[in-house]
Design a protein around this nucleic acid. Structure first.
Length: 883
RNA sequence: GGGCGCGUAGCUCAGCGGGAGAGCACUACGUUGACAUCGUAGGGGUCACUGGUUCAAUCCCAGUCGCGCCCACCA
């Protein structure tokens, strides 16, 4: 016998081990089933589960479990990402606590230390994924720095290099002066900052007393100015173009150039140009052949290119000094408050310095072309569709992708440098040495490039590197391309687009057919959850408190397309209650000997209730399957919730009680079997979303030898289960019982009181129905008998109108007659209002001429129904008035 | 500056051309042998605003107001 409540903690761990041990999670390349592949977005290896993970992995697990039940050979490929920068930041933090920095250790020791940390903490996230119920094929778990994946990275790099799609270039890059690494454009987060706009006078050379005013948010960069730009059409400065200014504090002469970049409307219309430290100025400088004067070192301290007084100052100290010195010389025209966007490194939070260095780049624009075409051609489809425009917009304006990082943790760039500066790009050091030896005619010592690759470079290969590429493995042939990629929109650029580019280039085919983009989980204020904001809700705490299934159901129910998920704990609690409800429904079934019987179908059951619940289960099956097919997790969850609670528990189980406890043995057996059948179906349909409780209940109520639910088949929606007549009849029964209950409640009839029901003005069919469902009416409406009403109604009768009859509750003196009259009058008034609207509509020739026939028919039907009810109510009212 | 999205019951959100919905919260009543993590009944909304299209608009279109997010080189 089941306990009164479901105890998730006692069940989850045991069942998970049972599933994993049974091989249920394992892909089966040798089996004959059609494959279904989802590549798990690899979480950071040293990370821990957050709500975003919980959402994305729940949805993926729902899909995987569902498809597996549908008979697909499901591969959910799990793994973790080495997460270069993120991991280095964590380990650097640990070192800081020991009072050390990574350079104290040296490269080798530092990398060893990170590996050690990875071994120690790397299991955390996958353990937590197991707690979420994730049915991934763990035997195939991969890590982005596994030897096989590293080989894939080198193959890709070398191939792209040989194709000219990976190259070295000296450009302005986004430099993090604390971490000492470059980052890509995507890793820059512009933050609105309150700053100042300093207006500085630059004296015109050769024209004493005349100067040109430039405005800047970064006065310290003036030390690196190599020009001043004005707009070519700006009459104010036309005579100055070609002249020079004497750069204050420095004394250098720099030219005034005409360039459309200068906006006459902004500030003074003249703009200082610092080509080595500003992306716009870089372009202007390039157009006019201005010098690129780098004034910062790797720490963003002023270098020897500036006057001695400033050397060694960091950029913020330099700003104060420069401003003070300019003010002292009377060259500061004015200072205004100014809000501006300051670029920060999204991980370290350090202010980015545009810096001129040699880096490795990938020609993303070239690789993007096939990716754009693939989405245009629908070879890959985004759900919801709107994200395709986001994808296109970015790929069509894509800049060169800076792929080198000055870090130690990551895939080291497979390029080797000879003492004379020559470079050899090869998959292995041996190959590079061989190339060098061939070139020089003798062995040469080579030094490997110090840099590592952007983490996303290896992530981009995930859909095929995990399957063994560049080896042509059976898995690669079978599971590539994947069916669906599930992820949040925040990494469309970082990851989705790059997998598309790499997959198309190296596999010749898209990496996945569908990209399902879900919302981000936000806090109650709509803010993105993040460690730095400190607004994290820990999914594991919710699992502890409410059970894994409750959390999963909540996330699925809230995964409506196109809207962010604002997580409310009350929802989780509500779905925990839902789990309890289901649990108790099964408990009821168990107590009443209801079990699923192999081969039994309620389609041709003798009792109408049983045929009705079969039809309702059919409808639910169709709806849930369709919802999952279109990634409407919210709708699937909603339909299941409604069917289980409102239909099965609230009505069917109540209907079943008198039968299960009654004397008709055949009816009892049929109802036991039907209840078992419905429960069986509910458990199957609910299993992808609530795997634990359903598996646990399955073990109690399923037919003997059913095996594990995780391996059971998804219900087929066989049309023979549909008996519309039964459905119509039961809907009437529900309506009639509800009407009686409502009247009783409104008129304060004590809930426990059993009263007679007299039926007036009834169609013949009504009596048949009442007879067939006599027990249901007696029990659920608390009646003591049912009889035809006499012509003269007893005084003190309550009356309720349903289709085909007026239901009369004769209660004698105890009822409040004026109140009953008022109740009826109110109801009549409401129906009169509706009838007036129908009348207007149905009298409108335009409506009759233009509306669809089925709509007109529907309106006529509803009008007739309302009129019928209204007339019966009026009659009922008149009867009372006559008393 | 460009783009996307959102304003529906007190709260969190579905619905999106023809009857305004769910969960939670609220009110009243209820220990009938599955379940008080429950049951029964009920209250509560000019579906942001203004115009337009349509026989018909919460739903489509335009604009306004408010809010959020993404992208962007304006000193």
């Amino acid at each position: 016998m089941l306990d009164k409540t479901y105890q998730p903690g006692a069940v989850e761990q045991r069942l998970y081990a049972l599933w994993e041990g049974s091989g249920a999670f394992a892909a089966d390349p040798a089996g004959g089933k059609p494959p279904f592949t989802i590549m798990m977005p690899p979480p950071n290896v040293t990370g821990s589960l957050h709500m975003g993970h919980a959402l994305t992995f729940t949805l993926q697990d729902v899909l995987v479990r569902w498809r597996r039940m549908q008979g697909r050979d499901a591969l959910w490929q799990p793994g973790t990402d080495h997460a270069g920068i993120a991991t280095e930041i964590v380990v650097a933090g640990q070192l800081a606590e020991e009072g050390r920095v990574k350079r104290d250790l040296g490269r080798e020791a530092f990398v060893a230390r990170v590996w050690q940390w990875k071994e120690q903490s790397g299991g955390t996230i996958t353990r937590q994924l197991r707690r979420l119920g994730a049915s991934a094929d763990w035997r195939r778990e991969r890590f982005t720095m596994d030897p096989g994946l590293a080989a894939a990275v080198r193959r890709v790099f070398v191939t792209l290099y040989n194709e000219g799609l990976v190259y070295r270039d000296k450009r302005l890059v986004n430099w993090d002066p604390e971490m000492h690494t470059v980052i890509s454009d995507l890793e820059v987060e512009n933050r609105e900052t309150n700053g100042s706009l300093w207006h500085i006078r630059y004296p015109i050379e050769g024209e004493t007393g005349r100067h040109i005013v430039v405005a800047t948010t970064r006065p310290e960069t003036m030390l690196g100015d190599t020009g001043v730009a004005v707009h070519p059409d700006d009459a104010r400065y036309a005579d100055l173009v070609g002249k020079q200014v004497r750069l204050p504090l420095v004394g250098r002469l720099i030219p005034i150039v005409a360039d459309e970049y200068a906006d006459p409307e902004t500030g003074s219309g003249a703009v200082k140009i610092t080509p080595a430290h500003d992306f716009n100025d870089f372009e202007v400088g390039r157009r006019h052949g201005l010098a690129m004067l780098n004034i910062f070192d790797a720490d963003a301290r002023l270098n020897d290119a500036v006057p001695a007084a400033y050397r060694g100052l960091d950029r913020f100290a330099a700003r104060e000094q420069v401003v003070a010195d300019l003010a002292a010389e009377g060259l500061l025209d004015k200072v205004e408050d100014h809000t501006l966007m300051v670029p920060h490194h999204d991980r370290s939070g350090v202010v980015i310095e545009p810096w001129l260095t040699d880096q490795w780049f990938c020609n993303a624009a070239e690789l993007a072309k096939p990716a754009i075409a693939a989405v245009e051609d629908d070879r890959t489809r985004f759900v919801p569709r709107q994200w395709e425009s986001t994808f296109f917009e970015w790929l069509r304006n894509i800049q060169p992708w800076c792929i080198s990082r000055q870090l130690w943790w990551g895939h080291r760039i497979p390029a080797w440098h000879a003492p004379d500066g020559a470079m050899f790009v090869a998959e292995t050091e041996a190959d590079a040495l061989a190339q060098a030896a061939a070139k020089y005619g003798r062995p040469v010592e080579l030094r490997q490039d110090e840099d590592v690759l952007d983490t996303w470079f290896s992530s981009a290969l995930w859909p095929f590197s995990t399957l063994g590429w560049p080896e042509q493995t059976p898995e690669l042939a079978r599971y590539y391309p994947g069916d669906v990629l599930v992820t949040g929109f925040d990494i469309i650029f970082f990851w989705v687009a790059r997998m598309m580019m790499m997959g198309l280039h190296f596999m010749g085919e898209v990496p996945f057919r569908t990209v399902y983009i879900h919302a981000l989980v936000r806090d109650e204020r709509g803010q993105k959850m993040s460690k730095s904001r400190g607004n994290i809700i820990d999914p594991l705490e919710l699992i502890d408190r409410y059970g894994c299934d409750a959390l999963r159901f909540t996330l699925a129910a809230m995964a409506a397309p196109g809207r962010d998920v604002k997580l409310a704990e009350s929802r989780v609690e509500g779905y925990r209650n839902f789990a309890t409800k289901l649990w108790n429904a099964a408990r009821f079934a168990q107590m009443n000997g209801c079990r699923s019987i192999a081969g039994f179908s309620p389609a041709k059951a003798r009792l109408t209730v049983n045929r009705w619940i079969a039809a309702a289960a059919f409808d639910c099956t169709v709806a849930v399957t369709a919802a999952l097919d279109s990634y409407r997790f919210d709708e699937a969850a909603g339909r299941l919730y409604q069917f289980v609670w409102s239909t099965f528990c609230d009505w069917y189980i109540e209907f079943s009680k008198p039968i299960l406890q009654g004397g008709d043995a055949e009816a009892r057996r049929e109802t036991q079997a039907t209840t078992g059948w419905v429960l069986d179906r509910i458990l199957r349909l609910l299993h992808p979303i609530m795997p634990f409780i359903t598996e646990e209940l399955w073990s109690h109520v399923a037919a003997p030898d059913s095996g594990l639910l995780i391996k059971a088949t998804w219900p087929s929606a066989s049309p023979d289960l549909v008996d519309r007549a039964a459905a119509t009849e039961m809907e009437w029964v529900v309506e009639a019982i509800s009407a009686i209950r409502a009247v009783r409640s409104e008129m304060n009839v004590p809930p426990a009181a059993r009263v007679p029901l007299l039926v007036k003005d009834a169609d013949p069919a009504v009596f048949e129905r009442l007879d067939r469902h006599r027990e249901h009416f007696l029990g659920l409406a608390r009646l003591d008998r049912i009889a035809p009403a006499p012509d003269m109604l007893p005084a003190g009768s309550l009356q309720a109108v349903v289709a085909g009859a007026t239901l009369v509750l004769p209660l004698g003196d105890i009822i409040d007659l004026p109140r009953e009259k008022a109740r009826l009058a109110k109801e009549i008034g409401r129906l009169d209002g509706e009838l007036a609207k129908f009348a207007t509509k149905l009298a409108n020739p335009q409506f009759l001429a233009k509306a669809k026939p089925e709509v007109i028919e529907d309106q006529r039907g509803r009008e007739a129904g309302a009129r019928r009810d209204r007339d019966r109510l009026k009659t009922a009212y008149d009867r009372l008035a006559a008393i």
